[in-house]
Design a protein around this nucleic acid. Sequence first.
DNA 1: CGTCCGCTTGAATAGTGTCAAGGTGGGTGG
DNA 2: CCACCCACCTTGACACTATTCAAGCGGACG
Lengths: 241, 241
Amino acid sequence: MTTRKKSRTLCTDPEWLGRADCRHCGIRHMMLFSEFQGSDFDHILEPIDNLRYAENSLLYNQGDDDNKVYSIRSGFIKLVQSQRDGSLRIVRLLGPGAIFGIEALLDMPYRHTVIALAELDVCRIYTATLKHLEKEKPRLNEKVMAHWEQHLAFADRWISELSSGSVRSRTLKLLSFLAELNGDGSDTIRFFGYEDMASMIGSSREAFSRIVAELKNEGVLVKTDDSQIYRFLHTDGNTTD
Amino acid sequence: MTTRKKSRTLCTDPEWLGRADCRHCGIRHMMLFSEFQGSDFDHILEPIDNLRYAENSLLYNQGDDDNKVYSIRSGFIKLVQSQRDGSLRIVRLLGPGAIFGIEALLDMPYRHTVIALAELDVCRIYTATLKHLEKEKPRLNEKVMAHWEQHLAFADRWISELSSGSVRSRTLKLLSFLAELNGDGSDTIRFFGYEDMASMIGSSREAFSRIVAELKNEGVLVKTDDSQIYRFLHTDGNTTD
DNA sequence: CGTCCGCTTGAATAGTGTCAAGGTGGGTGG
DNA sequence: CCACCCACCTTGACACTATTCAAGCGGACG
């Protein structure tokens, strides 16, 4: 179904922003290492790198085996899963504060292809380092588990909300989901490519486009000055599909 | 053992089979405590119970807050997620060896409603006990993580395989999935209720029924002497569905 | 032997994918 | 600064797929 040709070449070379300086990280509260002391980082084995990727960059491929875990400082990524028959589906969308590539902690190959949906700022840590730190601070373990659980909660919502029902209801759910990504309860939505958004709800680009047109007509989606940003006025009183 | 009564009402009272005796558990290799010594269980705080539930029993409800984690010895369960608008979707199907209710480890309420799909034999352990054991045996921690990752892998397949494409392709994927549950590579499939199977692939009962009829016609699904068991002959070369 | 529950099948209808053509806007180079 | 280009979004038409409603069937069980 979602077997459409790749339109864009994915440039893969990130810009190296330097060694991560977790002690002075401005968004430590949402990151993995929120409660570490500076001294904890003194004797880590390998560096934590801070990298910037351009939009559409490929971070890694499904099946790759590269023992690094990532943490998003800013920007968004999509996790894509491909099947033997060539069909693709976006199975998750992650933003600031999320970690990904966790399966590497179990020495497993990555289960997804990961692509930046917007300019992306990540920290990359070697699993050996992370395991080392976990031993010193058992609390970290719990945090990692919480992230795992977060992923599962997302995945389950992806199934029940973004993969069930009509295209219209799935679209509305996706828009709510995107609004939540702001984290501040605001009702603005950053639109990604329609191909991508359609792949999130498992529909065709055209069907998604038509629904969005409807919603604009109905005044549920309102343009802002930024052409990529819309305001989403969703009367939570459930529109019967 | 082929005695199966289907009661519409969900009876919730399990039969208590006794305290779990992990040291002599016949299927220890697939369970959570595979590498524990007998002595490890001597000073646990609260008992590990072994319970049997009848088909269609309700184990717990989405939103319940009851600090216990379960491990399946035999039988199958469905994890159901309901939305505010009342719609339901089965988001996972778990069998022998799987654990569920892990979110309780993070002191969170259960995220699913769990119902036995077949006579179910489970062990139930208090999170306090599990955390206690984890402290003594860090290896256990890794096992729990592996289970978590397993859940995620299932969830992602559920999205990309059972929630994308036509009803026919989803049905075929579901049948492959069910065949895998055997664990022994055999091609037999135990059919659950059509309502349930339809809810797994997010379609109507009728649509699912029609596809199954097709597959029987095509000789892909073959009856066995047990009316609930079919043989699934899937030429993996995908006919473009 | 009759009832009940769940599966099957048909017919009508709404929903969705697909193909194809046309529009739009932002970026680039002249 | 404008014209052009390209990627991406939009819209229409049509075929096909899936849902819904409704009726009928059949096995399990009392």
